[in-house]
Design a protein around this nucleic acid. Structure first.
Lengths: 342, 342
DNA sequence: TATATTTACGCAATCGTTCCCGGCTAGCTT
DNA sequence: AAGCTAGCCGGGAACGATTGCGTAAATATA
């Protein structure tokens, strides 16, 4: 069942005018007499005429829609980012098409190709945990297709990027643990391919070194799927806890890692923070209601979305190719609660 | 900066063929010789030709995209539904455009009109808390535009609808509270305009009556914004707790109501379940980690999205107008935890 | 050999809109 | 009265792809 819309032709026929005249009347051209304009405007209003955006897109070679690729929208951090994206996009007359990679490289590639073939004007990307090969994105980028990376960026590609100061976030969190008196601080990290993982571990390491504490690789466990699977986190924590100098504090590098960590502790009746302290990167609204309430590094997700979208739309609407790409770094926020208080 | 894509004309020109021949070769028409096909296929592959979906949409009068309107994507229940929608939509070659009402009637109207003007083929709607007037949707529906309602439906419109058995969900939860020995069970409800609120309160009331317990209007507090604002919940709970027969248990009718309720109790140092029990409708992943772990009515969100999308796409692709609209009702799941154990 | 049929391709219309390029009719100037 | 200029409007091409129809050449049939 097709839904038949009113077109400019219907108006032209009904009023005995040409389509060009109707089109011009609707766009308030100086070439059309006030009487004709009035006639056209009133009639088109009466029959609820709406210009067909598809036809416009075909003519203008732009669709006024942008694509977003994230791992999961059912993740507070990303849904907050999407809110930021949406707020700017709708303001500027763009709509957004969202695709999820579910942390799978294959699905990311499929989604990129799908979106690119759907004539979107630009792409906002946060890569999946598995992504190493970047051909699917480089291909588009080299042909001048606007791409802006956010959060999980790709250093090798020269585009706009919007991130949080992950180094500082992890550094501050680690320093907080050290100053609270914890001695063996382990790190529960996401995929080692991700920029955010590297940056956060960098901050963690530097904080230890700055405070004369030993850094050891064995105190880091990676989760390829970023904590999406409970088993993955369970295995990582099993590994950490069976080490000779058992950790008395853990810094978790992502939302799902943090919550699954808590789930693990609850299951094994490990008391937080008495047996072990926990701080994590998280944008959940209810970390304050957890048991114990959780110390977190919170990221300005909404702003990330806003800025990334502004950069993307500016690039889309720019007359000439962008020469200088920006990298915006936003500050994280450290929120201290019960889970790290001795 | 426009991104210039390869068209069928480029191929035709390069190979000295007509566009019709190229088009037919790409679609593997019997009218084209094997040699020509090979030539066209190889060349179009080489230059990464992708058909322009905008041009196709214009010809076929369909865009292969569907719109979604929900109040918030940063809400587990809705993001899970969107996952279900997406899984079916992408399978069938549709993409989804998401819009959020943020529980505002005005934004809902704007979004509906915006999406309708973007030539989507159909709409999946869960109305906002404020929505009473339905002209914006009825308008489209009367012109044969496919609309499927889910969760927060509209009884007055004859379309496909997908819901959860809210009556049963609330009934079972209330019976559980009664059987656990609670005497004064209050209800913290969402907007009284919403179908789900009416259904859930119906179940709550019936459960009380079936067990010979008095039902009183004063034991119900409505939150127009569905708990989005903490103040709203705070006010509602203040009202409930200052009643002569103070409630010893509360059933909350939505995710945000439930969590803000918990936040209120924590703030006022009210012990759950010792001072007051709490059960709520919620699809959060971490209700098990809350303090105390939360008894909930959980809804099959992913399935709601799947079914709604299947119904919508079937209607879009149906040759003739749908005569009989379906109303699918899915069962909720009652999960008992600490917050309701005496 | 003359006609019929098949093969393989091109032409042009179509979708809805914009916009360049004209054209016609007043009214004005010289 | 002839020419000129606004003012106002229509014709038609274009965007990219599909498709009904026409047709030349090649092959098959009588």
């Amino acid at each position: 069942m097709k839904y038949e819309a009113v077109t400019i032709k219907d108006i032209a026929k009904a009023l005995g005018l040409s389509t060009s005249t109707v089109s011009r009347a609707l766009r308030d051209s100086y070439e059309i007499s006030p009487e004709t304009k009035k006639l056209v405007l009133e009639y088109s209003d009466k029959i609820h005429y709406r210009p067909n955006p598809i036809a416009l897109s075909l003519k203008e070679k732009r669709s006024r829609s942008i694509g977003i690729i994230v791992c999961e929208i059912a993740n507070s951090f990303f849904s907050q980012i999407i809110n930021g994206i949406e707020s700017i996009a709708y303001d500027k007359g763009y709509n957004v098409i969202i695709a999820q990679s579910h942390e799978s490289y294959d699905r990311e590639v499929i989604n990129v190709q799908y979106l690119a073939s759907r004539s979107i004007d630009g792409l906002l990307v946060s890569v999946s945990s598995e992504t190493q090969d970047l051909e699917h994105l480089r291909n588009l980028h080299e042909r001048g297709f606007p791409i802006v990376f956010f959060d999980r960026i790709v250093e090798e590609m020269d585009t706009h990027k919007v991130i949080v100061d992950n180094f500082k976030g992890a550094y501050d969190a680690t320093v907080h643990l050290i100053q609270s008196g914890y001695q063996n601080i382990a790190a529960l990290a996401g995929s080692e391919y991700l920029s955010i993982t590297k940056e956060r571990l960098g901050g963690y390491r530097k904080a230890l070194e700055d405070h004369g504490m030993p850094f050891q690789e064995s105190a880091i466990q990676y989760c390829l799927h970023g904590g999406m699977l409970y088993n993955e986190v369970e295995h990582a924590l099993d590994e950490l806890l069976k080490q000779p100098n058992k950790p008395d504090a853990i810094i978790a590098s992502a939302d799902k890692l943090t919550t699954n960590c808590l789930r693990y502790f609850k299951k094994l009746s490990i008391k937080v923070p008495d047996d072990i302290a926990l701080i994590g990167f998280s944008n959940l609204d209810l970390t304050d209601l957890l048991s114990p309430s959780l110390s977190v590094v919170r990221q300005p997700a909404f702003e990330i979305g806003e800025i990334a979208t502004e950069l993307l739309i500016a690039q889309i609407e720019s007359k000439r190719p962008i020469q200088e790409f920006e990298k915006r770094t936003l500050p994280p926020e450290l929120i201290i609660r019960e889970s790290t208080s001795k």
